[in-house]
Structure formats: C-alpha cells, structure tokens
C-alpha cells in the first residue's frame, strides 16, 4: 500500500522534527531583545496601556496594513467566485424558518452586540481587544441576523462605502506620519499628542486607526459571510 505508506513516512519525519523542537526548548524566565525594549519603552513612547495593541498598530503597523490587505483580497476573491446569478429557481429546497425565541432574542441582542463591538475597538489601547476582535463581534451580530431571518439582506452599498473609506483613511493616516514627522515614520501614532496615559483620548492615533481597522474587518467578515450564505432559499 504505497498510498498509505508515503503519508505515514511524512508524518513520522515531521514527528521527529517536532520532537527535536519540543525537547530543546527551555521555558523563558525573562524577556529578551525586542520584547524587553517594547516593555520598557512602550508606555513612554506610544502612551498605550495595552502593549499588544501598541505592537500591532504602531511598532508593526506595516504588517497590520498588509494583513488587512490580505483579508481584503480574500474577501474580493470570494465575492468574485461566488457572484450571484440574477435569475434564481424558486423550486429549490426551502429553509426551515427560525424559531420565535431566536427571532425575538436576536432583535434584542443585535444592537447590544454591535455596541459591544464598537466598545471593544474604541478601548483597544486601554483594555484587551481592538479592531480585529471588535470587527469579529460586529460580524457576529450580522451572523445572528442571518440565522434569525434567512431572507435578511445586508445593504451592500453602505458596506462597500464603509470598507473603502476606512481603508483609505488608514493609509492616509500612515502617509500623514511621513508628511509631518519626516521619512521612516509611516503609520507613526505621534502625529497627535499622546495625552494622559490611561484615558480614552490618549496614545495619539492608535484609537483612530483601530476604529478604522474594526470597521473594515467587521464589514469584510460580514461580506464574506453574506457571500458564503448566498441565496439559500
């Protein structure tokens, strides 16, 4: 059985590689290198309480811009491949309607979940969370609406508008760093004053950028869900 043997050999060789890693790694006892620098200077440099946010938005801001681009490309590819056909047969399989509890509960919960998502990304520099988590929460609200009402449709024009403008403003804020602070300051958050450490209007442009990222990720994930769902009924 050569077809079974080759995967087995591959998995066994991968096992020995991973075994080497697992036996040779000692647990950390101290921060080293770049992490130590971030921990010591992050607060005074950028004014963000949440160091993960400081790394994602400013220290590694270019990576985040690239990642948002990858998400955009994936969403565009899905929309292109699963584009709607205008004429649709009516004799397809009929979906079971959602239960009364789900319908009523979703009407109550959707505004609260959306507001919670906005809260998460506005407070991204102060508490755990940020644009990606808040965007996912907003997409979950859209998901709940899809589950409760199978004929629910999102307004594509508004979603495309929000997504495009948040992407444009994200890049513009980055370019503003080049203009105001000079070269090699792309996406620097210090074009606005840092403010008081620990308040909501602090850390320069980090809350602004994370709000834009949250809107962009939320609308993109909702569009992906909408395209995957398609015309179910």
């Amino acid at each position: 059985m050569i077809k079974r043997l080759i995967p087995l050999l591959l998995v066994i060789s991968l096992f020995f590689i991973l075994l080497k890693v697992a036996t040779n790694v000692a647990p950390n006892y101290d921060l080293t290198g770049v992490a130590k620098t971030y921990a010591e200077q992050g607060a005074s440099d950028l004014g963000a309480m949440n160091l993960v946010t400081a790394i994602v938005v400013t220290y590694r801001g270019l990576d985040t811009l690239g990642e948002v681009t990858v998400l955009f490309m994936a969403g565009t590819g899905i929309a292109l491949l699963l584009r709607r056909k205008k004429k649709k047969n009516d004799s397809g399989i009929k979906n079971r309607a959602a239960s009364e509890i789900l319908k009523t509960g979703s009407k109550l919960l959707v505004p609260i979940i959306t507001m919670f998502g906005a809260y998460i990304f506005i407070n991204g520099h102060l508490s755990p969370g940020g644009g990606f988590q808040g965007g996912a929460a907003i997409a979950s609200a859209v998901m709940l609406m899809f589950l409760a009402d199978s004929s629910f449709k999102i307004n594509h024009k508004v979603f495309v508008l929000i997504e495009s403008f948040s992407g444009i403003f994200y890049v513009l804020i980055g370019v503003l760093g080049l203009v105001i602070l000079g070269a090699d300051n792309f996406l620097d958050n210090r074009i606005l004053p840092l403010g008081t450490f620990g308040t909501i209007l602090s850390a320069g442009t980090i809350p602004l950028i994370y709000t834009l990222v949250g809107l962009k990720v939320g609308t993109e994930l909702a569009s992906i869900l909408d395209n995957m769902k398609g015309e179910l009924e």
Binding site: N50, V52, T53, I120, P128, G129, G130, F132, Q133, A136, A137, A139, S140, M143, L221, I224, L225, M228
Partner: peptide, 19 residues
C-alpha cells in the same frame, strides 16, 4: 493572552464554524 483569546473565541469558534 486575553487579546488572542478574544480573537480565537469570536473568529475561530464562531465565524469559522458557520462558514
């Protein structure tokens, strides 16, 4: 790692399953 936990719970366990 609370940031990663939030992302994984919302995206990995929620959205990904539905997709």
């Amino acid at each position: 790692a609370p940031d990663v936990a939030m992302t994984e719970a919302a995206i990995g366990a929620g959205l990904s399953t539905l997709i």
